[in-house]
Amino acid sequence: MGEYVKVESVEEAQRSLREETSATVVAGGQEVTLDLRQGSIDPRVLVDISDVDALNEIAHTADGLRVGSCVTYRDLERDKDIRAEYPTLVETIEGIAGPQVRNNGTLGGALCDADPVFDAPTVLLALDASVTLSADETARTVPLSEFYTSEGETVLADEELLTSILVPTPPARSAGAYRSMTPRQGDSTVAGVAVRLVRGDDTACRRARIALTNGAPMPRRVPSAEAALAGTTLDEEHIERAANAIRDALELPDDLRSASYRETVFGRLAGRAIRDARDGLPEVKP
């Protein structure tokens, strides 16, 4: 309980964090407010970075789409260019929670929360996204697949801010899909599978990325499933192997639904997502 500081620059944010031992960073503020309400955090200072210009920029660069960490889901939904280039990402975002939450929720906030039930981090993993973490003098780029530790935390150091996310330009001849199961619209996802396939010259699948929502204590890719598809014709046999690999890799968090149901659903959603992505590839013969 206490102070609320709205900073206007990344430097100012970092200074506040340096000077204050009990501080929490706020972007959209929604998760933080819930945590405050539940009493799981009680910082003296809330440092609000949502007005920092640099963190609200959207740029189409040579490397791909660079999104400031405070860009809201709504901003992304409204951007026609992003929708055209990253359809799976935008469709996924449209299904997140409800309009009010998307008006205020940010990609950066979602990533830093490290909640395995969030959909956006999963799709970003499948798109090979990376994040820029800025400390005072330095900044480092971390692939999103290395951003989470196995305990469900992030590698964000105390003095670091997540300032931007880079979503690489999709390779030519690639397609993605995200399939998930939620009890109701906008609920926490029970099981989700994101797939991105890159077609090869000789093979249907040169490279695969597969990531899971709520399949582990943190958002996570499944390298064994990716390997099961890479270099294959994406026929039913290989899809089945990938689905099995996903089931084997599951470390299911607690849930009202039984583990056996979720395993079954993960397997079925995986098959569906892979086929949907495959069908989006050019000139694929399964």
């Binding site: 409800g98 009890p183 109701r184 619209q185 906008g186 609920d187 926490s188 009202l256």
Partner: peptide, 27 residues
């Protein structure tokens, strides 16, 4: 289709709108 109070030995496990599926407009 959606609504059920889930208990664990008499303790309510899903006593919030997050976990208890009261229908929304799209449901």
């Amino acid at each position: 289709l959606y609504e059920e109070i889930v208990y664990d030995d008499g303790r309510v496990r899903n006593g919030t709108f997050k976990d208890y599926a009261v229908p929304k407009s799209t449901d």
